[in-house]
Write a protein that binds this DNA or RNA. Sequence first.
RNA 1: GCGCCUGUAGCUCAUCUGGAUAGAGCAUCGGAUUUCUAAUCCGAGGGUAAUAGGUUCGAGUCCUAUCAGGCGCACCA
Length: 570
Amino acid sequence: MKNIIKDLIKESLYKINKDKNISIENIEVNLCKDKKFGDFSSNVAMRYSHVYDAKPKVFAEEIIKGIKEDKNILKIEVAGPGFINFFVSKGSQFEIIETILDQEQKYGKNKIGSGVKVLIEFVSANPTGPLHVGHGRGAAFGDCLSNLLKENDYDVVKEYYVNDAGKQIDILTLSVLQRYHELIDENYKFEYQDLYKGDYVWDIAAEIHRNYGNDFFIKDLIKYTDKLVDHYILNIKNKFSDEKFKKIKDISVKFILENIKKTLNLSDINFDSWFLESSLVNNNNLKDIIDYLNKNNNTYTKDNAVWFKSKELGDEKDRVLIKENKDHTYLSTDIAYHKNKITRKFDRVINIWGADHHGYVPRINGAFNIFSEGKSELIILLVQFANLYRGKEKVSMSTRSGDFVTLEQLLKEVGKDATRFFYLARKSDQHMDFDIELAKSNDSNNPVYYIQYAHARICSIFKQLEENKMFFNYQKEHLELLSKEEELSIVKKLSSYPDVIKKSTEKYEPHLLTNYMRELAQEIHSYYNKFQILVEDEDLRNARLALMEASKNVLMNSSKIIGIKMPNKM
RNA sequence: GCGCCUGUAGCUCAUCUGGAUAGAGCAUCGGAUUUCUAAUCCGAGGGUAAUAGGUUCGAGUCCUAUCAGGCGCACCA
């Protein structure tokens, strides 16, 4: 209907010879908030009156005069400062029910992204410990965004970047090694502040001891400790062979990755690709990257280090690529990683990062543009952290002490559906408070149950129908019997669903969809309370059932995108 | 100190890329069930959109300043 109106306006503009500066994409037509203004409204006259040096109201009148008759449009009028309001026939609005019942799972999908390859990288938490509640938001967000992109027919690859190289992993290895010694001989107990302290470190140490006995035991380990963690690592590496150190490292990373995958599975998140940082470090990639930047005049040498000229790309200052000691920095591998993404020929590359990384955006953006040469687009989306509450009480989260709520604990306590929904219900770049008590509650406080209940109620109607030996025998003509305000309101809501999908995707804002679901559920509950659906009149009954079936369909389609269940019974 | 983000009802948040009278939920108060699930519905109160200017037909939305909060400012990852 919206598009019909857009076409009518465009045609009119052409007729009055004022279409040159207004393309059809720029004609905005919206559902009216208040029905006294009609069903649809457009602001073209106000928006473009200055182009033709006309008063908005006069311009609007002119446009209306040029609009040809259409069987669906009952009345058009100018209102307020120059809105053009359209009053539309009921019949034309209820037609959407037919469309929804026809398209089923396809309703809401579109082809905007056909043939566009998108890589979406998210979570990518360091494999140095289990996922915590902060990661959960990015995980839900990335997964839902992937679903949305697929709904728009984009070709999506979901990737997890595993930081399995570098210092943090060495520190993890050291942590495991130390616990391993404590397991074997309690005299080895000593505190070292910079090491990882969570229980999972003990678990890994125990597993190693189970499988390898005392193979990695160093008799006088204490002699090799050093206040500087770098030296400590070096000492151990020297004491062990490289293979021995790597063995512990590999076991530890594998252990933690399995734990991470398990947690993600609990949340119904599956990645298509696990990209290892180590795969970039182990070959000549890095050297090639630096050489290329060199040739391109993007680097210089100062204080025996190689610097990336990121300042001229919008960064606060230049950054080191190769340290004085010839080690590469994290930035160089990250540039290599993004170069690799470009090599894989993605049209769009989406990174979902924690908001604390925002300072890192300009340098990666800059590097990306050097390598992509405009053939690929990088979009970095920042997800704010979530504060965890139990009712009024804030749950403290300190990673250092190992005293934090893991995502796994949260999922087990709250459940997958509520967890995902709560994470997604807020704008991602906005701080949020996640109340565990609220998410767990199974009463009206909880929007998840509210929405699921609407679905279950509709299912229950159809069950009742069957039990009463009646059948859903819908025909298109029945729709004309729908006349209640509430029915029209639901239908309008249903017809806006494809727009919601489009918009949530374009803006990368899944919360628009969760809001929509809540609003739709509300209309359904309201209607259910006010009107009987299984009425005597067979035709009216079928019409109302068709409306309910269509609503159920939309709830189901949207719930799949959010990633929550829609139970038939509650 | 510099940079980025945020400030909307007592609380948690929306506001459809600048539109008509700023909306929901929770909390508070009052009502609804012999009828398809009351995990529901209906109604009421509650606002200087942090503050002050500016841009225009029109500003919570864009610009500037101030105040308050979060985050970031490594040859760490």
